[in-house]
């Protein structure tokens, strides 16, 4: 099944998923995604919802350049992620994509500022430039007084804000968030989602995976994935506004 999700006016989408199939050989062949197509316009905010095993994580991994499709094409900001070498995909992950994970995934022995600066290390920034950029970003997420703390000294919400700052460090074309509020309490979750709203307002392209309806509703539209297929694409707000 194939469905176009980009508005016709958007000639230069940030992400294009074109007829992507992903199969795993686990004894028998398991099809995690079956000929999925999707387009994320520049500056859009999209949520993916679906039950576990629906293929939403696989889709996220493919868009994030962590995995390659069995068939089809994934392009991020013009880079054909599916065709690139391992080293080139690593470079795309480091410069074009910012990941925010449910479990934060910060380096445990690096301080907040070092964690935020980590993507810039692999992109060849100088130490001074990295630290300056990392400090600015930590300041933006309200952690200016926590720059030299290691993750174990930070609360869950603070850790997720460090992770968001890290995702923003290389000024990526796309922010990928996998259940970003899954490991924090409701109030903190709301703060995190406010930050995503701010990022969207500032023009960032965001793709967020969640299983919570109220989280998904913060996005512009919700892509429902089921059994390896995109079932429906629901426009939030605009649909009710007409």
């Amino acid at each position: 099944m194939s469905e176009s999700a980009g508005s016709p006016a958007d000639a230069d989408p940030t992400v294009v998923v074109d007829g992507v199939t992903k199969q795993y050989a686990a004894g028998t062949t398991v099809t995690a995604l079956d000929d999925v197509s999707l387009s994320l316009p520049r500056g859009s905010y999209t949520a993916i919802m679906g039950p576990s095993g629906s293929g939403k994580s696989t889709l996220l991994n493919l868009v994030g350049g962590l995995d390659t499709p069995s068939a089809g094409r994934v392009t991020v900001d013009g880079h054909d992620v599916s065709a690139e070498s391992e080293a080139e995909r690593a470079a795309i992950r480091g410069t074009e994509i910012g990941f925010v994970f449910q479990t934060f995934n910060l380096m445990p022995r690096l301080t907040a500022v070092e964690n935020v600066a980590l993507p810039l290390v692999f992109d060849g920034w100088s130490r001074e430039d990295r630290r300056r950029r990392a400090r600015e970003l930590l300041d933006d997420v309200g952690l200016a007084d926590r720059v030299d703390h290691v993750p174990a000294e930070l609360s869950g919400g603070q850790r997720q804000r460090v992770a968001i700052a890290r995702a923003l460090a290389p000024d990526p074309a796309l922010i990928l968030a996998d259940e970003p509020t899954g490991n924090v309490d409701t109030d903190t979750g709301a703060t995190i989602l406010d930050i995503f709203d701010d990022l969207h307002a500032a023009g960032n392209t965001i793709l967020l995976v969640t299983h919570e309806r109220h989280v998904a509703e913060r996005a512009e539209r919700i892509v429902h994935v089921e059994d390896g297929n995109v079932r429906t694409i629901e426009a939030v707000g605009e649909a009710t506004d007409g």
């Binding site: 962590l66 690593a90 470079a91 480091g94 990941f99 995934n105 890290r166 290389p170």
Partner: peptide, 8 residues
């Protein structure tokens, strides 16, 4: 984590 943020 390192690979996700761009480590080759």
């Amino acid at each position: 984590i390192m690979k996700a943020v761009g480590a080759r």
